[in-house]
Amino acid sequence: MNLGVELETIIGGISRGAIYALVAIGYTMVYGILGMINFAHGEIYMLGMFAGIIMLAVLTTLGLTALGIAVCLVIGLLAAMVLAAAFGFSNERIAYRPLRRAHTLAPLISAIGVSTFLQNFVMNAQTKDKLDFPRAFSEPLWNIGWNIGSAHIALIQVIVLVMAVVLMAGLHLFVAHTKLGKAMRACAQDKTMAGLVGIPVDRVISVTFIIGSALAAAAGLMAAMYNGQTRFDVGYTAGIAAFTAAVLGGIGNIPGAMLGGFLIGLVEDLTAYHLGADWKQVAVFVVLMTVLIVRPRGLLGERVADKV
């Protein structure tokens, strides 16, 4: 076995895992606060990709590439995050908020409806073929790299990892040290009580969706940059992988989502290397089934006793 390639695969897996971690955070935060799986979260990830690529194309058209790759990428990232946040916010208000008191399956069915709608909306609005990421922005990042032993790390992998870690750290600081973050934690523990002590629960929920969507969009754009292309239906497969990551780490637990993301990224890349790219989905499904049967609370989750 080629150790060099193995190591590269692992590095690639960690970069990919960082992306999944960002998306998994969105699933886990919404589950923690609302107790539902936001099935449409994968589509927000996909929207971020399209929005970012469009922004980059606009920048190129306006001749602003002179600003440099880094600046342009940041602008694209911001555009993606803003648009995705807008969609995520609207999603919650339109499709989930009216169903707060309905029985448990209603929000999930609604989420499936939103997911189908968004996927086909993008397919019709943009294109049903794959959309390439503007190489001018990503190629230089692939060309710069270092060699560690017989393995090669590209700058882009480092950037993806660093960006993801920065965003995750930022989220952690936000949740742990700001007033709004504390409000989010309170709502995740007990929505009713939080409302009774004066926390604006609806607003907190909106913020949760906005943050989760922005993170997913950032992840999406980075994934598009890394993979070189995207399509209207990538949200579906990535969503399932990220959801599995969230469950693996312990649903409702943000550090768990991060850990789960990295693990799933590793699982995927290692499977792709050893068995072939097609088997990635099966591997993810096997992980999901195993976790749900053997240890449903995930790696870092807490066992919750239900009171009848």
Binding site: L47, I54, A57, T61
Partner: peptide, 22 residues
């Protein structure tokens, strides 16, 4: 409003210049 960027703007690859434009 939020749908319009996706509906009205399309990234197109300009083969002549080798760049993308919107």
């Amino acid at each position: 409003l939020i749908a319009s960027p996706l509906v009205f703007v399309r990234p197109v690859y300009d083969w002549a210049n080798g760049t993308w434009r919107a």
